[in-house]
Amino acid sequence: MSTTLRNDWTIQEIENIYHQPLLELVYQAATVHRKSHKANEVQVCTLLSVKTGGCPEDCSYCGQAARYHTGITVKALMDKDDVVAIAQRAKDAGSSRFCMAAAWREVRDNRDFDKIIEMVKGVNEIGLEVCCTLGMINEAQAERLQEAGLYAYNHNLDSSKEYYEEIISTRTYDDRLNTLNNVRKAGISVCSGGIIGLGETHEDRIRMLHTLSNLEQHPESVPVNALARVKGTPLADLPKVDTWEMVRMIATARILMPKAMVRLSAGRAEMTTEEQSWCFMAGANSIFTSESEEMLVTPNPKLDDDRKMFELLGLKPMQKDRATSPTV
């Protein structure tokens, strides 16, 4: 498989890649992966919810939406010093990227945003890649974040444009794309992927990958999430995502966007070491950890379990000087 960067993939081409026999797909993805990345390096990212719950959105999968009765404890915005202390411990434990998440629909120009700016500066000063996911942002807000030292901004597409209205009604697909454009204009790297297991079809997954891979510039990071089913949300009773579906998505994303960091994100808590190893073979080269063993408000593997997995598979955490994503 070629590693030439393309932004003109057709739906048919992506379908042909995605629907290949699984072993052939993984082989092709692993070949592409090794041409652009070190196969034994995985970036360890730490994700922290700096403001939890109470979100006015109606994302059907999200335990932080105020309208659903999920039992999530709403927590106000954290203090900068506490956030920086957690970031330092994350760095000491092997993380090279620190992502701060706030359960907001959109950023507002107020004291809370000022606090986020100070958090970004503080985490940047200790030598970590700093990422935020705060909902929608405008150009001026993106510029403030960039000036504070923000390295990346996460804003997932979630699914295809055609399926999007089935899971969210409080913002549009174009709203998400506009935020990505604002992030790119500000010179911040883009982190954008999606969730599988929302009740979507294979065609919806292909369309989402089509949108991401045909952006004017590929996202530097592409998280692939399995639905983390949260009691009280409309999607709580959907079946667990099959691991082979995750492998297929990761492999296809790797082939379409060869230089991107493909991030094995939500859903790892329900995966065995053997299942995760297939994801790494297919081209995933990043995972998320947290002190609280939570992926925001859903379970995440223990740090010790990840260390044991890395040792078993011969993987090592990507260092900061290697963590900067290649220019895409």
Rank of each mutant, 00 (worst) to 15 (best):
K121W: 02
E106D: 13
G94I: 03
V130W: 06
A85G: 08
K115H: 08
M100F: 05
Y163I: 06
T133E: 07
A152P: 14
K121E: 05
M119T: 01
Y151G: 01
R105I: 07
A152K: 13
V84R: 04
S95Q: 10
G127F: 01
K161D: 15
L134I: 01
M100I: 01
S96Y: 10
D158A: 04
D92L: 09
V123H: 00
H155S: 06
K161A: 15
V130G: 02
L134C: 02
Y153R: 05
C131E: 04
S96V: 11
M136K: 12
Q146M: 09
L128D: 08
L157V: 13
F98E: 00
R144C: 08
L157F: 12
Q146A: 14
L134R: 05
D112W: 07
E147Q: 15
G135H: 11
W104N: 06
A93M: 12
L134Q: 07
R105V: 09
E147W: 10
Y153L: 09
C99N: 11
A148W: 12
E139N: 13
S160M: 03
W104Y: 03
A85D: 12
C132G: 03
T133C: 10
K161E: 15
Y151W: 13
C99A: 13
C99V: 09
G149D: 04
I126Y: 07
E165Y: 02
K91I: 09
I116Y: 03
L145G: 10
K121Y: 01
N154H: 09
C131H: 00
E125A: 15
N154T: 14
E165M: 08
A90T: 00
K121S: 02
A87Q: 00
R111T: 15
L128C: 10
M119A: 03
N110I: 01
K91R: 13
G135A: 12
Q141Y: 08
S159W: 09
S160P: 05
S159H: 08
L134A: 01
A152M: 15
A102I: 11
E125K: 10
Q141S: 05
C99F: 07
E162H: 13
S160D: 01
V107Y: 01
A93E: 13
Y153D: 07
V83T: 07
K121D: 01
A85I: 03
N110P: 03
E143W: 12
Q88S: 09
N138D: 15
A87G: 04
R89Y: 14
A142K: 06
